[in-house]
Design a protein around this nucleic acid. Sequence first.
DNA 1: TCCATCAATTAGCAATTACTAATGCATTAG
DNA 2: CTAATGCATTAGTAATTGCTAATTGATGGA
Lengths: 113, 113
Amino acid sequence: MDMIEAAPNPVTAVMRALADPTRRAVFERVFDSKEISVAELTRGSGVTQGAISQHLKSLKQAGLVAERAEGRNVYYRAAPQGLEPLVTWMDHYGVFWRERFQNLRDLLKEIDS
Amino acid sequence: MDMIEAAPNPVTAVMRALADPTRRAVFERVFDSKEISVAELTRGSGVTQGAISQHLKSLKQAGLVAERAEGRNVYYRAAPQGLEPLVTWMDHYGVFWRERFQNLRDLLKEIDS
DNA sequence: TCCATCAATTAGCAATTACTAATGCATTAG
DNA sequence: CTAATGCATTAGTAATTGCTAATTGATGGA
């Protein structure tokens, strides 16, 4: 068992994990469910159960999901804090505030009227 | 010349473009400069000019940079709107508001005191 | 004019990736 | 107990990726 893994930048890890459409779809489904089993995730995913398990492993390593075993099922749930590196990165590049402040302004205007 | 390219999801395109650390570093440097030439970008990048050009091509295709030719130089600048797909995606998954509202709350508290 | 510089493109390569099929190990059902 | 189910892991694969070295074409300076 080779635990040494030369941890890449968290931003890189998260981006890489979400860059693949299949894997991102898995994350989205996990996110949308409170909890979801591997079998359920496999259904209608278009790939095999093995592939799903592999994607879940990647997502877990990126800190984007967590799991809970129960009986022969393993239930996965999203770990939204895992997205923090992305938020921070984008924040640093100023995208949020510009866009969001506009939204906030609109919101306040609505409340005012 | 093969212009057909089977355009992937914009989110996938942007994520893929930014997932590679070297390429992301290029984007960051372009972003931090108003404009920057390929030669300048190559300096201290650790890779060859050819590699930089390839990365710029990817970034351009993802809508993250734009360029302007002048003489024998080509100056690149960031296209922050290119990040929109990412913002939208994350927004949909609710990350912003939670985090940012907290910040906003802190900010307002500060102003109050 | 001749030479240096800038940048894009190409071929070739090693490494990585996403997948399947198969296997093994638990756990539950009959 | 036996069979079926859920999941992880592995070996093997085809495709993709990121890089270099080299080439080409254009522009600018001496």
